[in-house]
Amino acid sequence: KITVTFNGEEKARRYYKKMQKHNLKVEIRVENNQWVVHVE
């Protein structure tokens, strides 16, 4: 499981979509004013 933190929504969403293309289970959320993407 990987957790990647971004300081911008745009970058986070781009990464999220990229990971989805690989058929990975991805989850995006905001934690402590940071955009966090969890990849299983």
Rank of each mutant, 00 (worst) to 15 (best):
K1F: 14
K1R: 12
K1N: 11
K1L: 11
I2N: 06
I2G: 04
I2F: 15
I2M: 10
I2Y: 15
I2V: 11
T3I: 12
T3C: 05
T3Y: 06
T3E: 06
T3A: 08
V4I: 12
V4K: 10
T5V: 14
F6H: 01
F6L: 02
F6V: 01
F6E: 01
N7T: 13
N7K: 11
G8V: 15
E9C: 07
E9G: 04
E9V: 08
E9A: 08
E9T: 02
E10H: 10
K11F: 12
K11I: 12
K11W: 11
A12V: 02
A12M: 02
A12K: 01
R13F: 10
R13E: 06
R14Y: 08
R14C: 11
R14A: 15
Y15K: 02
Y15M: 03
Y16L: 11
Y16M: 14
Y16T: 03
Y16A: 15
K17N: 13
K17T: 10
K17H: 13
K18N: 08
K18C: 13
K18W: 15
K18L: 15
K18G: 04
K18Y: 14
M19A: 07
Q20S: 08
K21C: 07
K21I: 09
K21E: 13
K21Y: 08
H22A: 12
H22F: 11
H22W: 10
N23P: 03
N23L: 06
N23Y: 12
N23K: 09
L24D: 03
L24E: 04
L24W: 10
L24P: 04
K25L: 09
K25N: 10
K25T: 08
V26L: 04
V26N: 00
V26D: 01
V26Q: 01
V26S: 03
V26G: 02
E27T: 13
E27A: 07
E27G: 03
E27S: 13
I28T: 00
I28G: 00
I28E: 00
R29S: 11
V30S: 07
E31A: 05
E31T: 06
E31S: 06
E31W: 06
N32V: 05
N32K: 07
N32Y: 05
N32Q: 06
N33V: 03
Q34P: 00
Q34K: 14
Q34A: 08
W35H: 01
W35P: 00
V36F: 07
V36W: 03
V36D: 01
V36S: 04
V37L: 03
V37W: 00
V37M: 02
V37S: 00
V37E: 01
V37G: 00
H38E: 15
V39L: 07
V39H: 04
V39Y: 05
V39R: 01
E40S: 12
E40Q: 11
E40F: 15
